[in-house]
Amino acid sequence: MTRAVGERLDTPTLVGLYERMLLIRRFEERASEYRLAGHIPGFLHPCIGQEASAVGACAALGPDDVILSTHRGHGHMLARGADPGRMYAELYARVEGYNRSKGGSLHMIDTELGFLGANGIVGGGIPIAGGAALQQKRRGRGGVAVSFFGDGAVNQGAFHEVLNLCALWSLPAVFVCENNLYGEFTPQADQSPIPDVADRAAAYAMPGTIADGNDVLDVYEKVAEAVARARAGDGPSLVECKTYRHRGHYEGDMCSYRPEGELEQWLETDPTITFPARLAQELGVDETELGEVRARVERRLDEAAAFAAAGTVAGVEQTLEHVYADSIDSKALR
């Protein structure tokens, strides 16, 4: 029996979770439109459908915590509180973007928020998260490192090496697997004989739990438990969020590999619809308030898109900047 939402967090916080999920949903939907309109030159891997796992997990974090994300990382970044204007500016390849137009969707960062990067390599962020957890432990301020990855990444060697290492050293890491049932174009069942990724935690002597990845509060509570364990010095945990991506692996993928009816079934648990419905039903959050949330999100994204469109384009002289940090980009480094 699902507990009432009001028992778990106060109403403004719950409405805030809805707003953030909606911000992610609309950010992604608009990005798709902006790409088709020719404003975004590169790849997009939309996280539409997975908003609850991003927002629920990030709601469990504090300011000292850091995040390593994936190719499907916009949601994690927005959930952490990133500025959609600087994100769109990066997607538009403008200097005002988070990475000064050098990275694009797959490499976005916000160091001030401890968002240490999306990643273009499946599983590529997991080892870095291990290192971030090592440094968190060395700092001794109770910070944790969260590693997001999908069900595809758990078949990479890095996943196993890093879980072993982090468990061995009791590092404050939280591994959040967003199991959206597909690794690229292939169902999870065709890639692994183990349906529940959480089961793999047993191999590394750490807790493995399953969250309903479309229930933002369930994700929040399971991740919060893992974070508390990490902060207490008791080591890493693995949390598997069962979810689904409504769109393809990347924008433009027609999803011909999906069985008929599967998407429709998952749309019934769409967190941007089910969660506000619960807020209305259980807490009496009325349509006026929900409408204000929706309007606020649209206004914010209007401004964000306008900021990106007004951004500046890097001069070609910037091609050679930032190859090395010691700014001796001289002929010796050609």
């Binding site: 390593l68 240490l116 290192g131 890093v162």
Partner: peptide, 15 residues
């Protein structure tokens, strides 16, 4: 675990 070890160094160095 060379990959985990280099990754550990990298993540720690970024912080």
């Amino acid at each position: 675990s060379e990959e985990a070890v280099v990754g550990a160094a990298l993540g720690a160095s970024m912080m």
